[in-house]
């Protein structure tokens, strides 16, 4: 039999395979970003806010990590429903906040009068805050295509904790509030825009407007009261 030289295998396509794999892994791998809950601390101020009782949803946790909602003992899982009810209820329900009606016309009128007020008092910080708030509401009206109802500015969820309350309880309370809030946002988003809320991407300009509009209807408002002993 004739002796044949072993031919060298062509390795030219090896690089192609390597690049194919490289690109595959580059695309499919996502870096795990650290998961967090964000909170903004209040400015140090001596001003006491007088809040209407019906505009406050009071959640308490005592030193034994027992939960109270509006002064009555409750389970931690009840918070979610209490929050939902606080944000969305039939207009005129006793002990729940009265809605504020927001329409295009109301936004335009309010912005105009604020504009005039700012000419007279150019350095009034409160007017500027109001102006920003109403501008966002106007944007929300535009995104929705019509008006909406939202809670009054001073409506808030209040958390009162004992000094000895455990951190895990605080986190669970916050989690319950956010779960309630996000489920409301989600159904509103599906209703108006036909997509789930968490599928909106804040890097996309049109989605960003939608997110901001939804947040105008269901704003995250959590107030943490001074640590004090709650019996």
């Amino acid at each position: 039999m004739a002796k044949r030289e072993v031919e060298e295998i062509n390795a030219g396509s090896m690089a192609d395979i390597a690049f194919l794999l490289l690109i595959f892994f580059l695309i499919t791998t996502t870096m795990n970003l650290p998961q967090v809950h964000e909170e903004r601390l209040p400015q140090k101020s001596d001003v006491e806010f007088l809040l209407n009782e019906r505009n406050v949803l009071q959640i308490m946790a005592n030193k034994n990590d027992k939960i109270g909602i509006e002064g009555e003992f409750a389970e931690i899982s009840d918070i979610q429903n209490a929050v939902k009810k606080f944000y969305q209820h039939k207009s005129g329900t006793p002990n729940q906040p009265e809605y504020v009606e927001v329409t295009r016309k109301i936004c335009d009128d309010t912005l105009e009068s604020l504009e005039n007020a700012l000419i007279v008092y150019p350095d009034a910080p409160l007017f500027k805050i109001e102006q920003d708030a109403w501008k966002r509401r106007l944007d929300a009206c535009i995104a929705f295509g019509d008006g909406f109802q939202t809670l009054p500015n001073n409506a808030t969820v209040s958390i009162q904790l004992d000094n000895s309350t455990k951190y895990v309880t605080y986190m669970n309370v916050l989690d319950q509030i956010m779960q309630g809030l996000n489920s409301l946002r989600d159904s509103l988003c599906k209703n108006r825009f036909g997509v789930p809320f968490n599928k909106l991407n804040d890097k996309v300009e049109s989605d960003k407007q939608k997110i901001s509009a939804i947040r105008q209807v269901y704003p995250k408002k959590i107030m943490k009261e001074k640590n004090r002993s709650v019996q």
Binding site: Q35, H37, E38, V168, N172, N182
Partner: peptide
């Protein structure tokens, strides 16, 4: 602590 509603 482990919670459900987190953000990146």
């Amino acid at each position: 602590v482990a919670i459900k509603e987190t953000i990146d």
